[in-house]
Design a binder for these strands. Structure first.
Length: 104
DNA sequence: CTCTTGACCATGT
DNA sequence: AACATGGCCAAGA
């Protein structure tokens, strides 16, 4: 039964990889986009991310507009730097979700 | 503002 | 093999 239905983890990764540059998505948005109801799972999947360079896990922020506390692929400072290079401006260690929020 | 609940899977015991 | 618990969180009470 698993053959026709990709795992939820794959779905999450797919959604995350579709976030355009200069935009971010919150964990809750990603979860709902995948039909999930467990935002915690997003973090779990991204932490088990097979290829962070492929999936834009750094474009996923928490609902406060801040980057994750524990960015496992180099440190949260790296995540922030990547976002800034995509044109996202940080203000007081936060980003303007109104400006950068992306939803499907 | 704090505490609890929610729902999913990988990992550890 | 089975059970318990944690994890880049969010929303509700």
């Amino acid at each position: 039964m698993r053959g026709l239905m990709k795992t939820k983890a794959q779905k999450i990764l797919k959604v995350v990889s579709k976030i355009p540059e200069g935009k971010v998505m919150t964990y809750g948005e990603v979860a709902k986009a995948c039909g999930l109801s467990c935002p915690r799972y997003i973090g779990f999947v991204l932490h088990n991310n097979p290829d962070p360079a492929k999936y834009s896990c750094h474009r996923v922020v928490n609902f406060q507009g801040k980057v994750a506390k524990s960015y496992a692929f180099g440190g949260e400072n790296i995540q922030r730097q990547k976002l800034e290079e995509e044109g996202i401006v940080f203000c007081d260690n936060k980003i303007d979700l109104k400006k950068y929020s992306f939803h499907m």
